[in-house]
Structures are given as C-alpha cells and as structure tokens.
C-alpha cells in the first residue's frame, strides 16, 4: 500500500515536472525577456522552499507519531481558549518561509482536533508576524511603521480567527 502510493506520487511528480519544463521552454522562446526574470524569481523561491520544506515535513512526520491527539486537543482544541490562541500565535511567529508551506501543517492541526480559530491564528502569525521578518521590516521601513503594523496585525489576526471560527460554526448549525 505505502510502497505503491510512493511510486504513484513519484509518477505524478515526474509528469508534473515534465509539463513545467515544457512551459518554461515555451516561455523562453515566446517571451525571452520575461523568461530570465521569472527564472530568477523561481530560483529565489525554490531555494527558500528547498531549505524549509524538508525539515517542516520531517517535523510533521515526527509530530504525527509522537504527539498524541489528546495533547493537541488539550492545548489547541475547542476548550483551549485564550491560551490556545496565544500558543498558536507564538508557534506561527517562529518559522520562516512562505505561507503555503504552513497550509499542510494547518491541515494536520485541524485533523488532530485543533480549534479552527487557533489554526487561523497560526496561519496569520506565520503570514505576517514572523519575528525574523519583522527585523528586516524595521531595517527597510523603520521602527515606527513596523511597530504599528505588527501591533495592529496582531489584533487583526485574532479578530480574523475568531470571526472565521464563528462563521464556520454557524454554517455547521444550519
């Protein structure tokens, strides 16, 4: 079963990569000017993803076997309240890398019984309250801007999470 799913996924990945190569070659002939710039962007992004994605997957795999569902429920579940929100916020500010790397983690949190609000807080913090990034922000935009933006985003992330949570609960009831 497992072996087969690895082979299947490898095949899919190979087909996808071949398709990507075709698109990139087409780009090169049709839009040579844009092609160079787009390759540069892709290289930057690939570097970032290549550095962050494997350890994130590894940690997810380890979390999957070692962290029992009860523990996720206790700290991040429906009854975790403000402590759950703050814990999710804290977890989201630690990493680096683009938001789409956080989606699989968020999905895993949901599956293990984390509260929707906490998952959305985690995503929001990952998106725009990452500590390493705020350092760079101060450098380019000044302390005052970074301070106000981070402070307001902090409040906004919690509001977004609580409203999303409410909306989904309401739609569940109907």
């Amino acid at each position: 079963m497992k072996q087969e799913s690895i082979a299947d996924n490898l095949k899919k990945l190979a087909i996808f990569l071949a398709l990507t190569a075709v698109i990139l070659i087409l780009m090169r002939y049709l839009f040579p000017e844009q092609s160079a710039l787009s390759l540069e962007v892709m290289r930057d992004y690939s570097m970032e993803v290549a550095l962050i994605f494997p350890p994130v997957l590894l940690l997810m795999g380890l979390a999957d076997v070692w962290i029992p569902e009860d523990m996720v429920k206790q700290y991040l579940g429906k009854t975790s309240g403000w402590r759950g929100i703050l814990l999710s916020l804290f977890l989201g500010t630690l990493p680096t890398g683009p938001l789409f790397i956080a989606f699989p983690i968020a999905s895993e949190m949901l599956k293990k019984g984390a509260r929707i609000a906490n998952v959305v807080v985690f995503l929001g913090a990952w998106a725009s309250l990452k500590m390493p990034q705020i350092g760079v922000e101060i450098q380019f935009l000044g302390l005052e801007f970074a301070f106000y933006r981070a402070g307001l985003t902090f409040i906004a992330v919690i509001c977004i999470a609580l409203i999303t949570d409410k909306m989904l609960k309401r739609s569940e009831k109907i």
């Binding site: 497992k2 799913s5 997957l57 590894l58 997810m60 795999g61 380890l62 070692w66 699989p104």
Partner: peptide, 8 residues
C-alpha cells in the same frame, strides 16, 4: 515518521 514525511 520518515515514511509519513516522504509520502506527504
């Protein structure tokens, strides 16, 4: 865990 990570 490694298998899970690889498949994911």
């Amino acid at each position: 865990a490694l298998k899970t990570a690889l498949v994911k």
